[in-house]
Amino acid sequence: MFDAAATVITLAAVLVLYRAIKGPRVYDRALAVNMIGTKTVVLLALIGFIYKRPHFLDIALVYALMNYISTLAFLKYREKGRLD
């Protein structure tokens, strides 16, 4: 069951990747990065359960905490044109 879920998540990542490469505007790509990050979190949790090592869940949680950093930097750059 976890294998099937991981496959579905990977297929969804294909769609997100398509939008990231094709995406006419840079905002589409920023959103795609964010979604790939979310999918990474879910995929990590699933891999943890496939390998029978549920403590991967903690790592997935920390990934979720780091996920938005690049999005914040991107938004700040788009708003002010600089980071400092």
Partner: peptide
């Protein structure tokens, strides 16, 4: 050609690479 988009794609690259490392059990 848009360098900002390149940076976004490199972010995606890193996330996928992280999953590959986890698959190899190198947490």
């Amino acid at each position: 050609r848009d360098l900002l988009s390149s940076i976004m794609l490199l972010g995606i690259y890193s996330f996928i690479m992280a999953v590959v490392w986890t698959r190899l059990n190198a947490v």
